[in-house]
């Protein structure tokens, strides 16, 4: 019998997928500032309508129940808040986002993030698998994790290459990924700008990509190649949504 080429055992170990969840894991995603969450969301909804004519297309494509991943292009710091505000309330409650550990030192920024959404901090400069492992835990808790597979904001509004971590997370945690294209945030608040300009923002939710066929293929292939294939499919889909 041919020897399996599957290298995913090591990836699973790094993602700590087979470890038990710490009891207080979900509790630590929120803080006291959660009490301001609903009024803050209402304020963002009003702002979205008034200044950005915020519209969402394809919300019916969201899977009925978490866990799943929402993955979008990344052109601006406004991407996540705009996508989040487009989600129906039942999904908002389940969304978790990661933020750079730098904000843990800037307390008002940390409080604002914690008031807006369930979240955790990661050191994005070094230990990238720590970010993936924490994201895997969020999915194990049957939540929704938001990721930007480009890993950083685009310089010109065009899609950057995607990092393979998105594919590794989806395939190993066996969860679908909802591709999202967000249009207008680059014009609103690009890299290097700090005051947002009024400009229409449109969020397009695509059909989820399920990892089943990739999990099957992985049995006889090096894991990285399969994660890459999944990530490329996701990028193609987000690119296609940009034309809608």
């Amino acid at each position: 019998m041919a020897k399996s080429k599957d290298t995913s055992a090591y990836w699973r170990k790094l993602l700590r997928l087979d470890e038990e969840l710490p009891k207080d894991f979900t509790k630590n995603l929120d803080s006291f500032w959660k009490v301001f969450r609903k009024p803050l969301h209402r304020a963002f909804e009003r702002l979205g309508q008034r200044d950005y004519a915020l519209t969402a297309v394809g919300l019916e494509n969201l899977p009925g129940k978490p866990p799943f991943i929402i993955a979008s292009n990344h052109a601006s710091s406004m991407d996540f808040p705009a996508i989040f505000i487009c989600l129906p309330e039942k999904y908002r409650r389940e969304v978790v986002v990661m933020y750079t550990g730098f904000f843990d030192k800037l307390l008002p920024a940390k409080w604002a993030i914690k008031a807006f959404v369930s979240s955790f901090s990661v050191d994005l400069d070094g230990n990238f698998w720590e970010a993936l492992a924490k994201s895997a835990k969020v999915l194990k808790c049957k939540k929704i994790i938001y990721i930007a597979p480009e890993g950083k904001r685009s310089y010109d509004g065009k899609l950057l290459p995607f990092k393979v971590g998105a594919g590794a997370l989806a395939v190993e945690a066996d969860v679908p990924v909802v591709p999202v294209y967000i249009k207008g945030t680059f014009e609103t608040l690009p890299r290097g700008k700090f005051i947002p300009k009024k400009h229409p923002i449109r969020v397009v939710f695509g059909k989820p990509i399920y990892p089943d066929s990739f999990i099957e293929k992985k049995k006889n292939a090096a894991a990285y190649g399969i994660y890459k294939e999944f990530t490329e499919k996701l990028r193609e889909e987000i690119n296609r949504l940009s034309l809608i």
């Binding site: 090591y10 990836w11 698998w129 990092k163 393979v164 090096a222």
Partner: peptide
């Protein structure tokens, strides 16, 4: 890149059980 780096270590783990 860092993820391809992990695949090198995953391949070492698979072939030689070098953890």
């Amino acid at each position: 890149d860092s993820l391809l780096g992990v695949e090198i270590f995953a391949a070492l783990d698979k072939k030689y059980h070098i953890d």
